[in-house]
């Protein structure tokens, strides 16, 4: 029977992360969003839904819903803060490192949370651009846990 052999060490969150988890500024749904993107899968234990209001190529507002751990909520909130007010082109340049740096640091095992927030953002932006180009709904791609 396969038993997980896991890394030893402490699992610790920074104060910045815990503060974001306790009081996320951008959590909730957005009325009349320009674009909505969902990534993750509850069977994997984390899922994001990001709502964006985009006007004239600028991200006016961002909100998100989270099914996930504290790192999931905190990285989502951080991501929303980092792209709010930016143009779509600027938001596309966002790096995962900026999300992590914004929280101080992230335990290695929680890095996928930042990746998930980042992927949700990318998906939202892609859908927005496709919508702009054709008005058609983008096809959601299959999702694999921790990919």
């Amino acid at each position: 029977m396969p038993v997980e052999y896991t890394e030893r060490g402490m699992l610790k969150y920074t104060e910045k992360l815990i503060e974001r988890f306790r009081n996320p500024k951008n959590i909730g749904e957005l009325k009349d969003p320009t674009v909505v993107a969902t990534e993750g899968d509850p069977t994997c234990g984390d899922m994001f839904r990001m709502f964006m209001k985009i006007e004239n190529g600028r991200i006016e507002d961002v909100k998100f819903l989270s099914f996930g751990c504290a790192a999931n909520i905190a990285t989502g909130d951080m991501t929303a803060d980092l792209i709010k007010g930016k143009t779509v082109e600027e938001a596309e340049k966002l790096q995962i490192k900026e999300i992590v740096d914004g929280l101080g640091e992230l335990p290695a095992i929680k890095m996928h949370c930042a990746t998930l927030a980042y992927k949700t953002l990318k998906k939202a932006l892609t859908e927005y651009k496709q919508k702009q180009a054709s008005g058609a709904q983008a096809q959601p791609k299959g999702y694999r846990c921790r990919s």
């Binding site: 984390d46 989270s66 751990c69």
Partner: peptide
Amino acid sequence: EGESMLLHLDLNGISVATGSACSTR
């Protein structure tokens, strides 16, 4: 998700364990 629940309970002074993946390694 259990880890969020665990941490929120902790903020309310209650210590518990979770069967969620996220709280373990």
